[in-house]
């Protein structure tokens, strides 16, 4: 697994959608995507999850990463170092584990060189 921090695109994904809960909450995850040129490349990043909500709502919010509880918010911002070698699922829940928001941080492979056409038909040795 090769590190390729240089290829990490710091895309901001802001959760400006309305919450399904009665208490409005918005969130922002930076970076929003890990873009690499080869499938085996990874992004090593300090991911920031920031909540925009009332203090009481924030203190009742927790973060799940890939379906595992990472921790609960004591302040509007959590920073966590991640090695991203695959898509990462972020879920925002309350302490009763009710889901409020989810976001998929994608590990995207962008071909730096497009495929080439073969000059001969495959299997045309003879």
């Amino acid at each position: 697994m090769k590190n390729n921090k240089g290829l990490l695109f710091l895309l901001t994904i802001a959760g400006f959608s309305f919450s399904t809960s009665l208490q409005a909450i918005e969130w922002e995850i930076i970076p929003g995507e890990c873009v690499v040129s080869k499938p085996d490349e990874v992004c090593e990043s300090l991911v920031t999850v920031r909540l925009y909500a009332a203090e009481s709502v924030i203190r009742n919010s927790c973060l799940n990463i890939d379906n595992s509880r990472y921790g609960c918010f004591t302040s509007p911002k959590i920073q966590l170092p991640l090695t991203i070698d695959d898509d990462v699922l972020f879920e925002l829940t309350d302490k009763q584990n009710r889901l409020h928001k989810r976001f998929l941080l994608k590990h995207s492979v962008i071909e730096s060189h497009p495929p080439r056409r073969r000059v001969r038909l495959p299997w045309s040795l003879f």
């Binding site: 060189h113 495929p115 080439r116 056409r117």
Partner: peptide
């Protein structure tokens, strides 16, 4: 890939 094309 696989249909007459190949990655460089």
């Amino acid at each position: 890939d696989g249909s007459g094309c190949i990655p460089p």
